[in-house]
C-alpha cells in the first residue's frame, strides 16, 4: 500500500526521469517525428513538479487531477492531451482515496490505456505509447493473478513496458507525425512508447528504493 506522500515521491521521480532523458527522447523523435518529444515532456513534467511543490492535495485523486491538468496545459504536443488523459483517468480511479493499492495500479494502467485509445483513436500495434502501456497493464494484471507482491507487480509493468517500447522498432507508425514516413519508421523506437516505459520504470524504481 502506498500513501499520498509516497505517490508524490513517485511522481517526483517520474519528473526527474523525464528531465534526465530529455535528450534521448528528442533524439528518438528527431528520427521519425518532429523532434520535440523530449522538450515537450520535460516542459510538461516541470509543471508537474511545480504542482507537487505547491502541494495542498485533498487526496490521491486530487493529486492526479492537478498533475494531469499541468500536462494538458503545458506539453504542447500530442503527448499533452494523451498523458493528461491518462492522469485524469487515474484521478477517477483514485477519487477520494488517501492510499493506493496494487490492484488500483492495475486499474489505473487499464483505464489510462483506454483513455489514450479514446483520445488518440489508436490501438496496440500502431507504434504509439499504447505499445508500452498495454503490455504493462497485462503483465501487472498477470502478476496480481499469480499473487505476486506489490513490488513484483510494479516491476512486471516496468519490464513489459520497456520490452514493448523496444518492440515498437519493428512496427510501422500509423499515428502522429511518424505515420507520414510509413515504412521508413521501421527500425526506430517510438518516442511515446519510450517515455511511457520511463514513466512506469520511475514508479517501480521509487518503491524499490524505499525498501
Amino acid at each position: 500500500m502506498a500513501e499520498l506522500n509516497q505517490i508524490i515521491g513517485a511522481l517526483r521521480l517520474m519528473a526527474e526521469t523525464i528531465e534526465k532523458n530529455k535528450e534521448h527522447l528528442t533524439e528518438l523523435d528527431g528520427a521519425i517525428g518532429d523532434g520535440d518529444h523530449g522538450i515537450n515532456m520535460s516542459r510538461g513534467f516541470a509543471f508537474v513538479k511545480e504542482t507537487l511543490d505547491k502541494g495542498g492535495f485533498q487526496n490521491a485523486g486530487d493529486l492526479f487531477k492537478k498533475c494531469g491538468m499541468a500536462l494538458v496545459a503545458h506539453v504542447g504536443g500530442a503527448s499533452g492531451p494523451l498523458y493528461g488523459t491518462a492522469f485524469l483517468r487515474a484521478a477517477m480511479v483514485l477519487k477520494d482515496r488517501e492510499d493506493v493499492h496494487a490492484a488500483d495500479y492495475v486499474q489505473i494502467l487499464k483505464d489510462a490505456a483506454e483513455g489514450i485509445k479514446m483520445r488518440g483513436k489508436s490501438d496496440r500495434g500502431e507504434k504509439t505509447m499504447l505499445d508500452a502501456l498495454i503490455p504493462a497493464y497485462e503483465a501487472a494484471a498477470d502478476a496480481v493473478q499469480q499473487g505476486k507482491s506489490a513490488q513484483e507487480i510494479l516491476n512486471a509493468a516496468k519490464v513489459a513496458a520497456a520490452e514493448g517500447a523496444v518492440g515498437t522498432e519493428k512496427l510501422v507508425a500509423q499515428k502522429g507525425r511518424a505515420s507520414y514516413l510509413g515504412e521508413r519508421s521501421i527500425g526506430h523506437q517510438d518516442p511515446g512508447a519510450a517515455s511511457a516505459a520511463l514513466v512506469l520504470a520511475a514508479v517501480a524504481d521509487y518503491f524499490a528504493a524505499e525498501k
Binding site: 494538458v72 500530442a78 499533452g80 488523459t85 488518440g120 507525425r177
Partner: peptide, 10 residues
C-alpha cells in the same frame, strides 16, 4: 493536424 485536434477536443 495531430495534437491540434486532441487539444481542441479537450
Amino acid at each position: 493536424m495531430g495534437s491540434a485536434y486532441m487539444n481542441a477536443q479537450m
